[in-house]
């Protein structure tokens, strides 16, 4: 059962700093990966996206989780509020991304095969 956040008075400083450490380490890992760009990761594809990009996206989602759960204190809210915010946004964003990226890929194909020259 979720607790009422307005009446908790104990300090959670320790948790805040540990989350900061996690976020910093993830960012550092992303930057190092982005600079080195190991060939195994840039040349392997998974669902038509480079493996390295999947890693970036997953790490970003992990960071988002920590920011929303720890900093915005979503972990202390009721289940109803959590679902109202997270499920709504997750559903709409995935839907929009699916449509736009599929369409973008299709337009790309058409521009490659079509009778119109784009570089003249």
């Amino acid at each position: 059962m979720a607790q009422d956040t307005r009446h908790t008075h104990e300090s959670s400083t320790k948790r805040i700093w540990s989350v900061f450490l996690i976020l910093s380490l993830i960012t550092l890992a992303e930057v190092i990966l982005g600079i080195i760009k190991p060939e195994i990761l840039t040349q392997t594809y998974f669902i038509s996206l480079k493996l390295i990009n999947w890693i970036f996206i997953v790490l970003t989602l992990v960071k988002a989780y920590y920011i929303v759960w720890a900093f915005m204190h979503m972990e202390g809210e009721t289940k109803g509020l959590r679902r109202a915010v997270v499920w709504t946004s997750a559903f709409l964003v995935i839907y929009l991304l699916f449509i736009l990226l599929t369409e973008g890929d299709y337009v790309h194909e058409v521009m490659q095969r079509g009778p119109v020259a784009w570089d003249f």
Binding site: S89, V93, L96, G104
Partner: peptide, 24 residues
């Protein structure tokens, strides 16, 4: 929270449009 949700969808729209242009 609800303002943040709607604002998040606005930003998602921009980033998804960026993704469209990038795939194109």
């Amino acid at each position: 929270w609800f303002f943040i949700l709607s604002d998040a969808l606005t930003f998602s729209g921009f980033l998804a449009a960026y993704g469209f242009a990038r795939y194109k």
